[in-house]
Each structure stands twice: as structure tokens, then as C-alpha cells.
Amino acid sequence: MKKDFVMNRLPPYYMGDRAELSTPGGRLPSLDSTVRLQFKDHTILTVGPDQDQSDETQEKMVYIYHSLKNRRETHMMGNEETESHGLRFPLSHMDALKQIWGHSAIPVKDLKLTTDEEKENLVLSLWTECLIQVV
């Protein structure tokens, strides 16, 4: 139900060109960056089975859905073709994601992931979706 709410919610109110909500801006995040979550009320973290696996041993994944790319023009118009916008991560990334969602700003190098490459890939993925910004 939370996923449906976020997928059908109006995008954040934004003065100016809405293209800025769907195009990452600012500095590219790196291991030395400090990042913060944008539009927390327009995102949801969920855990569920891997939707791409077809075998019986489905692995759990973390899904992040957001309403940043929803269109105001078609909101509440009864269009059944709602496209979900979001990301998918292994369950091992859950602690790091909770850190980002739980802090006002956090250094990338302090994220609870095993390698620096995983930390950089995580923040780059979130930045590309315009979910975080470098402070």
C-alpha cells in the first residue's frame, strides 16, 4: 500500500523547471563527500523478494520507490499505466540506506558497507535518481 501511495503521489512542489527534479545536479558524490537525502516524504524503502529471479530460492532485495518523476498533468486521471520509479539493492545495503534516511547529512566513507567501491556505487545510484545531494 505504501508503494502504491508513493508511486501515485504528486511530485514535490518545485519552483522553476521541473526537469531539475529528474536530472541530477551539483557535484558528483565521491568517497570524500557528505550527502543528504532530498524529498524524504516522497520516497519509500521496502524489502521484498527479487522480482528478477524466477527460481524457488528468491533472494530478498531492498527497493526504493519515489514520486520525483511522477507527472502532475496526469495525477488522479485514472490512467492505469503508472510507471514505477525506483532502485533495487541487495539486502546487505539496508544498514547503509537506513543511515542515509536517518541522518540529516552523512559522510560517504562512514556508510556501513564492506568496500569503498560499494559505498561510492550506492551514493552514485541515489544521486543519479536525484534522491540525494552532496553538501
Results as ranks from 00 to 15, higher is better:
M1S: 14
K2H: 10
K2S: 10
K3A: 10
K3L: 06
D4I: 07
F5N: 11
F5K: 13
M7P: 00
N8A: 10
L10G: 07
P11M: 11
P11Q: 08
Y13D: 08
Y13G: 10
Y14M: 09
Y14N: 08
M15L: 15
R18K: 15
A19Q: 14
L21M: 13
L21C: 07
S22F: 08
T23L: 10
P24Q: 10
P24F: 09
P24D: 06
P24V: 04
G26L: 08
R27H: 13
P29Y: 05
S30V: 14
S30P: 02
L31D: 08
L31G: 12
D32E: 14
D32I: 10
S33A: 15
Q38E: 12
F39C: 14
F39N: 15
F39Y: 15
K40A: 15
D41Q: 15
D41G: 15
H42G: 12
T43I: 15
L45Y: 07
L45G: 10
T46G: 12
G48M: 09
P49L: 14
D50P: 05
D52T: 11
D52C: 15
Q53A: 11
D55P: 04
E56D: 15
E56G: 09
T57G: 06
T57F: 13
T57R: 15
T57E: 10
Q58H: 11
K60Y: 12
K60M: 14
K60G: 06
M61P: 05
V62E: 01
Y63I: 09
I64F: 04
H66T: 06
L68N: 01
K69A: 13
R72P: 05
T74W: 11
M77I: 05
M77Q: 14
G78P: 06
G78T: 04
N79A: 01
N79M: 08
N79F: 06
E81R: 13
T82N: 10
E83F: 07
E83H: 14
S84I: 05
H85V: 00
H85D: 02
G86E: 00
P90Y: 01
L91G: 00
L91Y: 11
S92G: 07
S92K: 14
S92W: 02
H93L: 01
H93D: 01
H93C: 10
H93G: 03
M94K: 12
A96M: 03
A96I: 04
K98W: 01
Q99R: 07
I100Y: 03
W101K: 04
S104L: 07
V108G: 01
V108I: 04
T115P: 05
E117W: 04
K119H: 02
E120T: 10
V123D: 00
V123F: 03
S125Q: 08
T128S: 09
T128G: 06
E129R: 01
C130L: 00
L131C: 04
I132R: 01
I132K: 02
I132H: 00
Q133N: 01
